[in-house]
Design a binder for these strands. Structure first.
Lengths: 282, 282
DNA sequence: GGGCAGCGATACCTGCTGGGTATCGACCCA
DNA sequence: TGGGTCGATACCCAGCAGGTATCGCTGCCC
């Protein structure tokens, strides 16, 4: 199976429309149809159900969509990591660390400081990204290492070390009646009248259905809370950089959040090993 | 980057010889040379150092060898899992479980029995393989799930659940003086005169340098021990099927061995989920 | 109900490129 | 110094990826 065929199939499987997929791929529709047919013939498997009005995935097709994406990411990673290895050899080593914007910033700065103090440390570029993008970046080689937060982020397929565990707090507008409490329970904040939890975009950029305002990052989220339009349950460490018009109250029975440092398995970079070592000692 | 190019590069990187690599790939040498050059040009990276007498890997080349193998395994896995999904739809679901021949046989039979008793269980094919082959089989889709033994097997890149932990024993010929002891320490068996640890083949089938006889599987190993030519440190559970001419003595300070059940991440099969559930309840 | 619009499949052509053979040029060794 | 080994180069051919034109089916709407 060639990566070209995989790319074609993934495009069609995502669009469920040969014309749009072809456009996205920058080719005409007929060669795309033919390539998919040929892929199906060679696999001996029907991947798509076509009527002349709609295209849908078969069971096998959805398996190939999932596995094919992973395989394409692995190929991309091979490409990028090879290029970076060549750069590193000519004097620009460096690591790319990715984490969610606004999370664990204190831990992150301590980590970077500790690592920079190591004898043979390399430059670390920090990449801040949105919700759920980190796994992708790590998988396809755009990043070397990530800070993830269990149980929110999936650590499937990566090597990890736990860095720290913390409780969660509910973030409310300053002056909200509940901010007088020293601590709260989940039940107390499950359905605050007028303060729903916001909706985060899924990996494809669309928002789930339901109540609550849409938020794309922490800035938007905090503004919504300050406006009295939302509330949020976040790790304790967010208190460090909370705006003055917000207040946080500890939640006794919220699930704890574990920050882990994660990297692709079978990674041989000794710069990465050094960073992980520094991280576990912080 | 196309999988064809990756396959070509991996072949050359493994053989370090264009002619042999071309033969292995079933093509002539000139197109192979050209393909590799083209790959280097497109990546903008030198992958191989050629003199007219020898070929060697650059730093970037060895990165691409490692990453390329992983990517090719992922592509193979996509292929195999898609075919199997199609088979499953037409009535032959089934899981393939892989484990080291001769290890955890009691645990394995209990596990299979417990799972078979579940209401909607599917057939489980058991694949017994040699040392270190399991990760490969799991990664390239020939197996769905594996029993691995930490710290010997790498669980990098897989999801795992711990099943059980056990101590280790030293296996000696029956009648050896030390077999009279109720328990021993590592230091006692570190260098038994005339009874060295055997050498196991590496993943490429070659044996490491050093003293000790060569063994390929447990049968050979046990025979060597019975002949008074070797000794071995193995998990306790091996006592269950020890030959009568061998004896095992517990080691107090040997590292414990954890048997884990492992499967590829982002695997959605509910048959697999059922097997893992059964396993953790055993 | 018939015309129309949307969509995938088919037919057919063309040019790129992957693969083949022949040969060269460098290097080691006898 | 000549033969043997090995990768690179030159050149040719065929297969196939990709393009255009068009067909056939189907749901929709006046």
């Amino acid at each position: 199976m060639e990566t070209r065929e995989l790319r074609y199939f993934v495009a069609v499987a995502e669009e469920l429309h040969f014309g749009r997929a072809a456009q996205r791929l920058g080719i005409a529709q007929p060669p795309l149809s033919r390539a998919i047919r040929q892929l199906e013939r060679r696999l001996g498997v029907a991947l798509l159900e076509r009527t002349s009005r709609a295209v849908s995935l078969t069971e096998a097709g959805s398996v190939l969509l999932r596995e094919g994406r992973a395989a394409l990411d692995a190929v991309d990673a091979a490409d990028r990591r090879t290029r970076r290895a060549a750069l590193a050899a000519t004097g620009q080593p460096g690591l790319v660390l990715v984490t969610k914007a606004g999370a664990s910033s204190e831990l992150l700065s301590k980590l970077l400081e500790a690592y920079a103090a190591e004898p043979d440390s390399v430059t670390v570029d920090v990449l801040l990204c949105g919700i759920g993008e980190q796994e992708r970046l790590l998988r396809d080689g755009r990043a070397d290492v990530a800070l993830l937060h269990r149980p929110f982020d999936s650590t499937a397929g990566f090597d990890t070390e736990e860095l720290c565990t913390e409780g969660q707090v509910v973030v409310l507008p300053a002056g909200h009646p509940l901010t007088g409490q020293p601590r709260l329970r989940m039940a107390d904040v499950a359905a605050l009248p007028g303060l729903p939890r916001p909706r985060w975009p899924a990996t494809d950029g669309t928002y789930p259905e339901g109540p609550g305002p849409q938020a794309r990052d922490n800035t938007q989220l905090f503004q919504l809370i300050a406006l009295g339009r939302a509330s949020a349950v976040l790790p304790e460490s967010c208190r460090a950089n909370l705006r003055s018009d917000l207040a946080a109250v500890p939640l006794l029975d919220a699930p704890t959040v574990t920050t882990v440092i994660a990297w692709p398995p079978h990674s041989r970079s000794q710069a990465l090993a050094g960073l992980v070592r520094s991280a576990t000692n912080v």
